[in-house]
């Protein structure tokens, strides 16, 4: 009866930012990104991509509560980079990887249909 609407899980409420950024108060080059209405799908690929960046000293994500539909990504980098730079780089690299994957799949699909 008083169940929340199902779309609460994936529609960002009005007036709430999709991504918010907060620097760590004590550690330089460390910050947390709070992403609204996302889960392990985005959290885990971003974390693993950040681990490939040699300037990233720490990258992790958490889903604070299964009924709070947000994730928190924490990044700590060397002075050569910044959390924001590493975050943007990770998204760009993943985006390019998916572009490549799409082209590779389409090429393979047409090759496969010719083989038949």
């Amino acid at each position: 009866m008083n169940a929340p609407d199902r779309y609460e899980r994936f529609v960002v409420p009005e007036g709430v930012a999709k991504v918010s950024y907060e620097r760590d108060t004590k550690i330089i080059n460390a910050a947390s990104f709070t992403i609204e209405r996302e889960d392990h799908t985005i959290g885990n690929i971003l974390r693993m991509q950040l681990h490939r960046d040699e300037n990233v000293l720490f990258a992790g994500y958490k889903l604070p509560h299964p009924l709070k539909y947000k994730i928190i990504i924490r990044i700590h980098t060397t002075s050569q980079s910044s959390p924001m730079q590493a975050y943007n780089q990770a998204i760009n690299d993943l985006d390019k990887e998916l572009d490549h994957l799409k082209n590779a799949f389409e090429a393979e699909l047409s090759r496969h249909s010719l083989r038949q």
């Binding site: 999709k18 950024y21 620097r23 799908t41 985005i42 975050y87 943007n88 985006d95 799409k102 799949f105």
Partner: peptide
């Protein structure tokens, strides 16, 4: 693949968060 790309695009930092950080930077923190 397309949906995942859209999702990644949605989590890009918006211009005003970047700006706010540059303005206050360490001091703000």
């Amino acid at each position: 693949i397309d949906v995942l790309k859209q999702k990644l695009d949605a989590v890009r930092l918006s211009a005003d968060t970047v700006e706010a950080d540059e303005q206050f930077g360490e001091l703000g923190a």
